[in-house]
Design a protein around this nucleic acid. Structure first.
Lengths: 202, 202
DNA sequence: TATAAAGTGGCACTCAGTGCCATGTCAACA
DNA sequence: TGTTGACATGGCACTGAGTGCCACTTTATA
């Protein structure tokens, strides 16, 4: 039924509004239920917990990331898949009207932040699978898929933080900046001035 | 006072033992307090929560990582600092007698895993600071420090997972393996057989 | 030994989360 | 139109987490 989605949205909106207004810790489930015009008991039918609700965007964000990976043209090299994925996910999230509000809540309340971070680990699993599939990294190489997934999320996290801190809207250029930084770190050609060359091995 | 530490250790040991035995979710704070020969109220004087207790090792692990970064000889290049850090942290943790037990608990119970993951974010902050300090990445380049921190933890996570899954004890070789994988991904010379070359740029 | 400081345990309270059950709603069907 | 069944809802009661408060005990110091 479509009404289900309506109730769910009502709860979610009410919750975010209250979190922003009164604080994450200060808002009880009863508050949210009341503001959404439903009961405490129903709240828990739609969301597993307050934390679960808070991390909802991370989950959907994860599926769009996985989609981005899978939908990348087959000709793309690994690094290109990589970059496209980060860029696409960043743009998608940046476009969502509530994103900044949610980031503010997460920045302010550790409990809210933890709720999100906890889900990131699940997203990482999804990504690893998607990468493995996309790049046919079968056999003993799920390791690379996992490294890619971890790296992708690290870069995204840095990207968002920087984008959020700057208060600017052009997330694509933030992505460029982050990639330039990594290249510099890891030994690509581009550089932001500082030499810090590779030659890693023991 | 030294007795404080004794009580704390007693609680911690009792908790880990019970988690392994009955499960994380199934163990109540009362159970732990009783097993440790203290009261529920005192439990909360030593640990903020059950989750806090579960994540205790992550915290100490974080400080040893930060130390590893700071104690790296000044001559080392960035990638070397990097590798040393990962290796040192891996070895340190692998050496701790309870590490495997804790990983088993985390593997089995999502709530326990989440508790740990939530703390990893804090560790990442610590690492970013340490990297920034160690490499004198002042000014506008905290970004690189954060990328390094994220990358370090990603690699460590993969390393541990692999080490844990294999059931082997030589974590140094696992680290080698992971680094070879990254190099392969990002365009170094070493390779584990599969070509998936760099040539990053957009 | 007296006394201050610090640690401890019990009690009561709020809030999260869950199981159970009675009620309400809507649609299909007789 | 009235009955039935599926399903969503809301209330109630219960357990466990986490906290504030206070009385008690232990320990260090004079």
């Amino acid at each position: 039924m479509r009404k289900q989605q309506l109730v769910r949205d009502a709860i979610w909106d009410a919750a975010i509004e209250l979190f922003a207004e009164k604080g994450f810790d200060e808002t009880t489930v009863d508050d949210i239920a009341e503001a959404a015009g439903t009961s405490r008991r129903s709240f828990f039918r739609y969301f597993q917990s307050k934390s679960d609700l808070m991390a909802q965007d991370i989950v959907s964000y994860g599926t769009s990331l996985a989609d981005a990976i899978r939908s990348c043209p087959p000709a793309c090299s690994l690094p290109v898949v990589f970059r496209r994925t980060v860029l696409q996910a960043a743009q998608l999230s940046a476009a969502h009207p509530r994103t900044r509000q949610i980031m503010e809540i997460a920045a302010k309340y550790p409990a809210a932040r933890e709720a999100q971070i906890a889900r990131v680990a699940e997203v990482q699993e999804q990504l690893a699978e998607a990468f493995a599939e996309r790049c046919r990294l079968g056999g003993g190489n799920e390791m690379m898929a996992r490294v890619m997934a971890g790296l992708t999320l690290s870069l995204l996290s840095v990207t968002f933080r920087s984008w959020f801190a700057d208060g600017q809207n052009d997330i694509a250029s933030t992505v460029d900046q982050v990639f330039a930084t990594v290249k510099d770190l890891v030994g690509g050609r581009a550089g932001s001035g500082r030499r810090s060359v590779p030659r890693g091995g023991r």
